Simulated assay, not measured.
Amino acid sequence: MGEKGKLARIVNPILTPVTHPLLPNASAPGQLSVKQIHQCLSEIGDLPAKKFYVVGEPISHSRSPALHNTGYKELGLPHEMFRFETSDAAKIHKELLSDPNFGGAAITIPLKIDMLKYVDELSNSGKVIGAINTIYPIGKGKFAGTNTDWLGIVNSFIRNSAPAKISSGNGLIIGGGGTSRAALYALHSMGCKKIYMLNRTASKLLDIKKDFPASYNVEVLESLEQIETVADVKLAVSTVPGNLEIDSGLLTKIKAVLAKGGKESFLIEAAYKPLVTAVMKLAKDEFHWNVIPGREMLVNQGVVQFGLFTGFDAPYKPIYDAVVSDN
């Protein structure tokens, strides 16, 4: 097709041969990269720029803009993600969702439940978990909501050599916040026969247990005597704040239950600051668990989110590097 055929390559919607910047040269004259095609589509008005947001409070530390904006840049997409700090879901509905250029939002605390009321289509994960971290338009004035945190957990396990489905063994969740619900959904999907839950306040966990089907086989650990009966813990997720000192009573229980796993066990830390948390250090140094840092979960849930927002696979390495660059 040559140079004169570039426009045909740009506007053709299917089976367009492309080149890549890492190749020494294009395999045919006039061949373009995906990034170049997207940039040209944007220039001719065929790929309109969308505005994306991370919403919640506080969000000044959020790495979501770095993650998504890096992906847009790598693929030549004209979009941009901004921070929109608020704890008022109605404000997001009024100021963001009504904008025709709104492309979607990553939802953080304290809005993961409050934003449910503005969703017209809710995924199964959103229904079961009872919270969403992603909202995006699906038609004029209509929005879909889902939870990608659970996939961030599952895919982080898999990327770090844990089995996609365990043939035997149990799961463990430390903490009782919103992420613990996503963790429960994730561990059940990975085949955990029983899921133990541990928190400073057991009443929070009992409330969570009531909200999930009996088939999840949740056991709330309230005492050291109860922990003595725990067996064969293969997968664990810590959702307690990483930057706060752990209550001494809870710490004793965490040690007791981590002793029920070992070299073939995997623990994901949901917090991504600090880079190494107290729970991570304990699991690795004292009990020889395979430990996965929180930035893995952040990136992997963001990869799923990126695909929902744009329809494209995220460039994993560039966005991972962008997320961890300040750690």
Rank of each mutant, 00 (worst) to 15 (best):
S156N: 01
A322C: 13
A131L: 01
P213F: 03
V303L: 15
S125H: 05
E286M: 13
V128A: 07
P293Q: 15
R9P: 03
R9I: 01
N170R: 06
K6E: 04
L198C: 00
L221K: 10
I292Y: 08
Y216E: 05
L298K: 14
G262P: 04
A202W: 12
D211K: 15
D149E: 10
F309R: 01
D120V: 01
P13D: 09
K50A: 09
L298Y: 06
I37P: 03
Q39V: 01
E219K: 15
F306P: 03
N327P: 00
A66E: 02
A164Q: 14
V291A: 08
G130Y: 11
G262A: 09
R9D: 09
S325K: 14
I113P: 00
L15H: 13
V119L: 08
S161Y: 13
I59D: 12
A162L: 11
K4A: 08
Q226C: 08
D120G: 04
N25F: 14
L250N: 03
G5R: 13
G126W: 14
N147E: 09
D99Q: 06
G104T: 11
P318I: 04
N155I: 07
K260E: 07
A8N: 14
R9M: 09
T229W: 08
Y272V: 02
V291W: 11
L32H: 02
S168T: 10
P110H: 09
I132L: 06
I246F: 05
I227H: 14
G249W: 12
A8G: 06
K140Y: 06
G139R: 12
T19V: 05
N133T: 07
G311K: 06
K112I: 01
D114S: 15
I254T: 07
L111N: 13
L298N: 11
T108F: 10
L221P: 13
N243T: 10
I109N: 12
N160K: 13
P274T: 13
W150L: 08
S168A: 14
L308H: 12
A183H: 03
L111A: 10
S60L: 00
I153G: 01
T201R: 13
I107T: 14
V257K: 11
F287W: 06
G126P: 15
N147W: 07
L23Q: 05
S265M: 07
N101S: 15
D99I: 05
H61K: 03
I129G: 03
F309Q: 00
L41C: 02
A90F: 14
S203V: 08
Y53T: 05
D321W: 00
L205P: 07
L206S: 12
N155M: 08
I10C: 00
D120H: 01
L23K: 01
D99T: 00
V34T: 11
G177C: 09
D207G: 06
V304R: 11
Y216I: 09
S238A: 02
I195M: 06
G169T: 04
P21I: 13
L151H: 11
V55H: 01
A89W: 02
E80Q: 15
E286H: 15
P274D: 09
L198G: 01
